[in-house]
Structures are given as C-alpha cells and as structure tokens.
Deep mutational scan, measured.
Amino acid sequence: MQNSHSGVNQLGGVFVNGRPLPDSTRQKIVELAHSGARPCDISRILQVSNGCVSKILGRYYETGSIRPRAIGGSKPRVATPEVVSKIAQYKRECPSIFAWEIRDRLLSEGVCTNDNIPSVSSINRVLRNLASEKQQMGADGMYDKLRMLNGQTGSWGTRPGWYPGTSVPGQPTQDGCQQQEGGGENTNSISSNGEDSDEAQMRLQLKRKLQRNRTSFTQEQIEALEKEFERTHYPDVFARERLAAKIDLPEARIQVWFSNRRAKWRREEKLRNQRRQASNTPSHIPISSSFSTSVYQPIPQPTTPVSSFTSGSMLGRTDTALTNTYSALPPMPSFTMANNLPMQPPVPSQTSSYSCMLPTSPSVNGRSYDTYTPPHMQTHMNSQPMGTSGTTSTGLISPGVSVPVQVPGSEPDMSQYWPRLQ
C-alpha cells in the first residue's frame, strides 16, 4: 500500500499530492522566468500547473527564495509595531506611495530583511487598517496617535501638521516623493554593498519588468496595427511575429492590442446598429396606417339613396333571421326581375335548405315592403301603392349592394327569390 497518492495534472505532468515540487523543477521555473518566458509558457514547457508556477515565482520575487514554506503551523507575524509605524510614516510623507514602493524602502533602510519582509498584500492590509482606524477615531485622537508614531512633539492640530517642515499644504506631496526618490538612490547604494547585491538587483529588475506600465504606442505603430486590423481581426502567430519585427513591439503586446481592438470594434458596431435601427424607425405612426385595407374592405359607393341603408337594423327591421341572411350572402350585381318571367313554384328541397333563413311567422307573405323604405322617402312611396304591378321595390342582398326588384302586385311571395340566388 502506497503512503502517498501520485497523479497526472491537466498538462500531463506527474505530481505527488500534498508534497511540494522538487527543487530542480523550481530552479528551472526561475531560470525560464529570467530568460523572459511568460508564466503560461513555463507552465506548458515544464508541465506544471499555472497556479503552481505563479505561486513559486511570486514567492521568489518577494523573498528571493525558491524553497517551499513549512507545511503546517502558523507563519510568524511580520507586521510588527515597528514595521507598522514605518509604513504609516512613509504614507504620511508621500500619500500616493504604492505598497511595493513601501516594501522596497523597508528593505533599503534595513527595517526588514528578506526573511521577515511583509508581502505587498500585508502592507496593503496595514494601510487599510490605518485608514479604518482613522475613520473610527476622532480628529484629536487621530492626531495624537500619528504624533506618537512619528515621534515628534510638534502641533498636529492642523492639517499642514501632517507634513512636517512644510508650510504650503500643496507642497508636502512633492517633497515626500522627492525624499522617497532619494531613498531609492540609497536603495541602490545599500544593496550594492550587501553580499547578495547582484541577486537582489536582478530580482528587482525582473520584478519591475513584470510590473509594467501601460504600453505607449507611437503613431507609426498605431498606423501599422490599424492597417493589419483592417486586413483581418484575428491575425495568426506568423502575422503577429512579422508585425512585431516590423514595428519593434513584443508579440504578446500585439496580441493584447488586437484583443482590445476587437472589443472596441464590437462596441462601435453595436452603436452603429442602434443608430441604423433608430433612423429606419419613423418618429410617429401615421393615422391612416393604423387601418389596414386588408382588414377593412372598402364599401362601394351607393348608386341610389335607398342603398345607403345596408342592414335591417338601420331600417328599423327587427327580424334577425333576414338580417343574418342578407349579411351572409355574397355580393351580387344589380339585376331586375321582369313581370314576364315565369313564376316557378319553389322546389321543396330548395325551400327546406333555406328554411332556417325565413321567419317562422306566416304573415311574411302579407307584409308590405314599406318597412324598408327610409324616412325621407315615405311620402313618395305612399303616393304609389304597392298593389300595382309596376311598383318597384329595392331588396338588399349584402352591405353596400342594392338590387332593384320588380315585385308582382298580386302576391309578394318571398319564396320566388331563392331559386334565382343559387
């Protein structure tokens, strides 16, 4: 039975679970980093996980050691009161100082060594604690504590007292930064006198190289990059290397530039699409467009005044059976039934097929058609009795279509119309 579990990581490298990497692998990681390889490249070359490479390099940059820390136990506290007071002093002298600059000053002034120097995250935590204590304490208590930490007896009751030896409130920041720059020169002199001055200088240079600022491109470089971006948004590694040799930039910087440029292009394309949609959409909808001609068919113009009344309900007709019959029939052209047409008796099958359309009241044959006459024609229609054979009435077949029909004066039988409509 094995005491430890061995495995293979996602890159194909072998590791022992819970145990640190061998010293030979750690040394190779540092050597590759000094030669300029990126952590992701080191991870692929040595088949070590990216997190492990970053952790080893980060500890090497901070402490200069590649040895693993002790497994188990607690780390001794490195942010001692003396170190905290120095950090507060540096922050007062130059409020814009960075944590890694404070760390360098602690090393250069001999406050800490490589073994007990606090990390950048520890210094940031100390600065946050100082800021929170400043908010919790009152103004007087804060000034007393700062005077105690600074070891001075001057008056701290006013704002300019934060910067000793100065009279203009805006000047101390520059003086403090100048003092810090002077301390940086002392850093070089002190570290050069040490035993491991060369190694420390190499480590600091490598650290500065990794902690780079934003790349500033010249106009020629920007023009070359934009020209390549117009050709393709995704250049391959050969195109990037050719462009890197042409404009004297690292291939990694060119790759990052193209990634950022593609993101910018997507944002601009989104804005262009929004403007295009806004320009195509009308600002207001016309009133006429809300009524579609496919839904509402136009009603033909009436030929006679009587045809303006298109349904039985508008003429005072309360018989719903006839109203439904007229509205359900398709529109037909106007025609006239003459008196000489043969009077065919209704076929029983045809009569039964339209039995649902006729009223059940037996008085329908005896009703006159003056009910369908509009009010303004009552006088004219009353002067001509319906009993004469020459009287013409208008029957409504569908809305908007008038059918003048000659009705025999002897017997106005409704059943004569249905064979004609089939």
Rank of each mutant, 00 (worst) to 15 (best):
G110M: 12
A99N: 04
K145W: 07
C52S: 08
S65D: 15
A37T: 09
M148Y: 12
Y61V: 06
L11V: 05
S35R: 13
R105N: 11
D41Y: 12
G36T: 04
L11D: 00
G18S: 01
R69Y: 11
I29D: 01
E82G: 08
A37P: 03
K55R: 15
G138P: 14
D104M: 13
A70V: 12
R147M: 11
L130K: 07
A33V: 07
C94S: 10
K134I: 11
P22S: 07
Q10M: 11
A139V: 12
C52M: 01
K28V: 06
G141S: 11
D140V: 12
N50I: 15
L146I: 09
S121P: 14
E101V: 13
I123T: 15
N9A: 01
Q136K: 08
P118C: 05
T25R: 14
Q89W: 14
V53N: 02
N50K: 00
Q47T: 05
V8F: 11
Y60S: 01
A88M: 08
P81R: 10
N9Y: 00
E62Y: 05
Q89C: 00
N114S: 11
L127R: 06
Y143D: 13
V53T: 04
P95G: 11
C52W: 02
H34N: 11
P20I: 00
Q2F: 10
Q136A: 09
R69V: 04
S85A: 11
I102T: 05
G7E: 15
L107F: 12
Q47N: 05
V84C: 10
S24C: 11
D41L: 07
I56M: 04
F98T: 09
K145L: 07
D104Y: 09
E31Y: 15
N50W: 15
R92K: 09
D41H: 14
V120K: 00
N114K: 08
I117G: 15
D144R: 07
C112G: 09
H5I: 12
W100E: 02
G141D: 07
I45L: 13
V14C: 09
G51N: 02
Y143V: 14
W100A: 07
S4D: 11
N129H: 15
M142W: 10
R125V: 03
M148E: 09
E109A: 10
S6E: 13
N3G: 09
Q27A: 10
S4E: 11
L107P: 09
N17E: 05
N124L: 04
H5V: 12
L32A: 08
E93Q: 11
S54L: 15
K134Q: 08
V16P: 04
N116L: 12
S54Q: 07
N114L: 13
L146G: 07
L127S: 14
I87F: 15
S54V: 15
P68S: 05
A70W: 05
K75M: 06
L32G: 03
G12N: 05
G18Y: 02
V14A: 14
G51S: 04
E101N: 14
M148K: 11
I87S: 06
E109Y: 13
S122Y: 02
R44D: 04
R26N: 01
S85D: 13
K145E: 08
C40G: 07
A37S: 10
C94M: 12
P39N: 00
T63C: 10
R92E: 11
L11S: 03
K91F: 02
I71S: 05
E93T: 14
Q27Y: 10
K86Y: 14
F98R: 11
R26D: 00
G36Y: 04
V30Q: 07
N3D: 14
L106E: 02
Q136P: 11
L146S: 10
Q10V: 09
R19A: 05
V8E: 05
P118Y: 01
R77C: 04
Y60T: 00
R59H: 13
S132W: 13
Y90F: 08
T80V: 13
H34C: 08
D104G: 12
Y61W: 08
Q10E: 06
V111N: 12
S43D: 01
R26W: 02
D41P: 02
S35T: 14
C112V: 09
A99E: 02
F98L: 06
S6A: 13
N3S: 12
H5T: 10
P22C: 07
D41W: 05
V84R: 15
I71R: 05
S35K: 15
G141L: 10
R44W: 06
G51C: 04
R59V: 12
F98K: 15
I29G: 00
V8C: 06
Q136W: 12
G36S: 07
G58M: 14
V126D: 01
D23C: 15
S35F: 09
E93D: 13
L130T: 07
C94A: 10
P20Q: 02
G138D: 08
A88P: 01
C52R: 02
Y143G: 14
S4T: 10
R125Q: 03
V83Y: 03
A139T: 08
D144P: 09
I117D: 14
N116W: 11
K145G: 10
R92D: 08
V48F: 01
Q2K: 05
A33F: 10
C40Y: 05
N116Q: 12
D115I: 11
Q135P: 14
D144M: 11
R105C: 13
R38S: 06
L127N: 08
P76L: 05
L32V: 03
P118H: 03
W100Y: 10
E82M: 09
G72A: 01
G7A: 14
R38N: 04
N9R: 02
S4P: 09
A131W: 09
Q2R: 09
L149P: 07
T80S: 08
E62C: 06
V84H: 03
F15P: 01
L57S: 00
T113E: 09
R59S: 06
T113K: 08
Q47S: 14
V84Y: 05
E101L: 13
R38A: 05
L11R: 07
R103C: 05
N124T: 05
R59D: 00
G110S: 14
S24W: 10
K28P: 01
V78I: 10
V8R: 13
R147Y: 14
E82W: 08
L57M: 15
V16C: 07
M137H: 09
A37Y: 05
